[in-house]
Nucleic acid binder design. Structure first.
Lengths: 228, 228
DNA sequence: CCAAAGCGTTAACTCTCCCTTAACCCACCT
DNA sequence: AGGTGGGTTAAGGGAGAGTTAACGCTTTGG
């Protein structure tokens, strides 16, 4: 169960934040942490996360604004809101802004962990196979097929493809791709280009339907060409 | 907001069930109802639902078993569990079986409604799109369509368009546009003019309905033309 | 223990496309 | 006429993206 989840905790109460991080650590899950809203929003824009744990009361920019901000950028990472207030009105506000779950302080740490895992499961969860058009990725066998023909990919190529397939048809920024593949110690920028090149060479077999697209200034997207 | 949701309520307490159904009715949402686990499972297997509200204490077959049953059939409809018990252990059990949310009785009816809507929203993959007339901007794909035809824009053009669409039908000053696109180090004044020109050339395809308007002395506005 | 193969990274090069700039045009107003 | 605000056009320079080859690390098998 100890998957490789990427969690972001946006919480200004240092004690609470540390407690959360420690608990996740016990589960074998590492988290990033931001102590204010602006920093949180920055991290979210430039990284890939599976779940965002977001306190409402934050310095600089409150949780609701952060949530609104990330949704308005088209990012739909699940958001779990934390708050001290238990009024229905606050919940309504939170949910209507785009939050996915809502936990009232004080809460049992275990419940936070569980709910976080549930949220992540929906997204990247117990799916064995990703399919986009005639492209198939079997996550267990680490096998890729295009039009029922097996394709041989390098480990890195496979990771890139996985990321793109998970997000299809969304455009994935280079930063997110690199974050997904290499984590925090990333190689020189050029490496991604080379891998993309190799990926394309491997995946785009027939010249009729290309799936991997470059979106200038934004990144890459995996999808059927929309010009029908 | 009154989408066409299909909800199933599996609850043996007739009063509570009716209350729930009535509340959803007020929101313009119709629900099916099952008063025991076996019946619930039957309905779920043979119908499509967007969300299932599932009491744990049920005659014939309890909620946990029902949930296990539907998951083992590969049905991944979101499940919201209801229970009188507020022990962590129960929640863990519920979530690990495949539930997506968990509400402890007594609860506020509004909260049930909201959480249900949130669950359905995530499933049906809410789309982040800005729309003005027949112009569509997909924030996730970074793609622009006019009358269902894809339009290719440069990164800068896209940013300008995004700014205009967010503010529609308001008039946006040049300063604001430039701030949005370039931030603090802005190029010479002329650049915006050129980009606006290119934007127009790309967006105003048919000559019938023009969307981008110049408001002399103030800036630009994106809207259906209405010469005041 | 060595050799070969596979993979990832790097650097260097090319190419394309986009942004900027500057110059010119037009209409309208004073 | 001249000034002002806006529109149009073309050219250059540069950044971003694609391509290729070589080097080095790790793994594997003999």
């Amino acid at each position: 169960m100890a998957e490789n989840l990427q969690i972001l905790v946006v919480e200004d109460d240092i004690d609470l934040a540390n407690a959360i991080i420690e608990y996740f650590d016990l589960e074998g899950i590492q988290c990033d942490h931001a102590s204010n809203g602006v920093l949180g929003l920055q991290l979210i824009t430039n990284h890939h996360y599976d779940v965002i744990i977001l306190d409402i009361n934050l310095p600089k920019m409150n949780g609701l604004e952060v949530c609104k901000g990330i949704r308005s950028q088209g990012i739909d990472t699940p958001v779990l809101m934390l708050t001290a207030k238990d009024t229905l009105d606050d919940k309504v506000k939170g949910f209507s802004i785009g939050a996915d779950d809502y936990l009232v302080k004080p809460f049992a740490m275990e419940e936070l962990i569980i709910r976080t895992q549930v949220l992540s499961r929906r997204r990247s969860g117990q799916v064995y196979k990703l399919t986009v058009e005639d492209l198939e990725l079997d996550l267990q066998q680490k096998q890729v097929k295009r039009a029922d023909q097996e394709i041989k990919l390098s480990p890195t190529g496979l990771k890139i493809l996985e990321c793109l397939m998970r997000e299809t048809p969304k455009t994935v920024s280079r930063e997110k791709l690199m974050q997904f593949v290499w984590g925090d110690d990333q190689p020189d920028s050029n490496s991604l280009k080379v891998h993309m090149f190799n990926l394309r060479k491997a995946v785009e077999i027939d010249d009729q339907l290309s799936l991997i697209h470059t979106i200038p200034g934004h990144g890459f997207a995996l999808k059927r060409e929309s010009i029908t």
